[in-house]
Design a protein around this nucleic acid. Structure first.
Lengths: 240, 240
DNA sequence: CGCCGTCTTGACTCGCCTCAACCTCGGTGG
DNA sequence: CCACCGAGGTTGAGGCGAGTCAAGACGGCG
């Protein structure tokens, strides 16, 4: 899956990479060619940072393959996972919101391939390419909506429900259908889940053990498969 | 303070209303005149909704005076306050983020005066008026940042710290300097604060009573004055 | 083999929620 | 003018969810 992208630096990028993505959907081949020619392809090994909180915003990215974890760190050293970026999404788009420094750290969750453009091209893309702005801001809108949901969640729900929600979000965003159910498409630890939900590693472990006993999930090290999604939905409190 | 705005419907709106606000700062008198002429002025009594969650987005607003509470309600009926809008800010700008329905409910916290424009003018403003888009998205960026902070807060901090943070945010956004300290510039109940922090009314009450005993705040019914802001900052955990 | 990152499980503790009772204003109507 | 009522606020008692502390198992990698 990844192999097809290796050595991207050497050959020309294929236009089909972008044609199906919302921000580029309305563009013609020539326009996409121009955008691709201006891009720098990048690879990231798991756990390597793409950019860090507080750094000046100098470019923006499009994730082609892999998964990015967006992380914020508290003064106290705890970290929480704000967001997962999936292939096809723009990220690091502080430029779009008038930011001069990145508000969070982005780390590759697995092997990642991304395109990067220098910041000054942002305004150019916006003005020159019809639909680019609209579609991009639409996805910003979706992320804002998701953040809002999480705030409500954190404010009103118990840990068990929050963990259920987090896992459901993961499977809708990165899920892979397998024999026994739906598998989360990126390596994930209990610690990671606790960083997403504001719980402790221990509590998450206990919950997952319990769910495994009940046949709702099956998990190996750094991997979780949901075998009974509907039951997780019920636990999540989305339906009363 | 409000009186100067009463009966706005009858006279022409004064251009000075907009000249100092970020989204309009780069515009000339003619442009501002055109924008004002297209606006519908509105008044809202305390506790009346401006728009409700789920309604189709048909217009966007600028708050001239008063305060708006942006509220989300859970399936379970609990409500949490997502945001406060202060004078000079645009709100209900779902259009900017490609939304078709409002993601939250907006309610007047006190007497409010606002301008409203039909949605179709959004794109017109964006394209026609230089700087309008940039400045607007910058303030969206600020709100996103604030939301992010709240997520981290909710995930990592105890109730006492969250309440302290919430009150600090209120005084930076709406604070009024008075003899005894800084007063929150809008009517606010313990219930409101609990809706902002995901705590219970009772716990908030206990905390405020404690702080009052310690001389950090003074409060009357629906009003809070912070007498020792630095001590609140310490409690908030912003500094270790 | 030994180390380290991951995960598990038990026992204890405590912050905050729940339940419950009561107080204090401010407004309204008889 | 006072009695009443409801919204907002206070305070205590008790219980439970989830964090903390502690010990250890499992599996992969150098």
């Amino acid at each position: 899956m990844l192999s097809q992208h290796r050595g991207l630096q050497l050959k020309k990028l294929d236009e089909s990479l972008l044609t199906d993505l919302p921000p580029f959907r309305k563009l013609n081949r020539t326009q996409i060619r121009a955008i691709l020619d201006a891009a720098t392809p990048l690879r990231f090994d798991p756990m390597t940072p793409v950019f860090s909180e507080g750094q000046p915003v100098d470019r923006f990215f499009l994730l082609l393959d892999g998964h990015i974890r967006v992380i914020r760190t508290t003064p106290g050293g705890e970290q929480i996972i704000a967001l997962h970026i999936v292939p096809g999404q723009l990220f690091g788009i502080g430029a779009a919101l008038g930011r001069t420094t990145y508000p969070a750290t982005a780390i590759a969750a697995d092997d990642c391939v991304a395109l990067a453009w220098p910041n000054r091209l942002w305004t150019e893309f916006i003005t020159r390419y019809d639909g680019f702005a609209t579609e991009t801001y639409k996805s910003v809108g979706e992320r804002v909506g998701e953040m809002n949901n999480r705030i409500v969640e954190m404010a009103t729900q118990q840990v068990e429900q929050r963990v259920a929600c987090a896992i459901l979000r993961l499977i809708t965003q990165t899920g892979r259908k397998v024999d026994s159910g739906i598998e989360i498409g990126l390596p994930i630890t209990r610690q990671n889940i606790s960083d997403m939900t504001g719980a402790t590693l221990h509590t998450v472990s206990r919950l997952l053990s319990g769910w495994e006993r009940e046949g709702i999930v099956r998990s190996e090290r750094r991997k979780i498969t949901v075998t009974a999604p509907q039951r997780l939905v019920i636990l999540s409190g989305a339906v009363a």
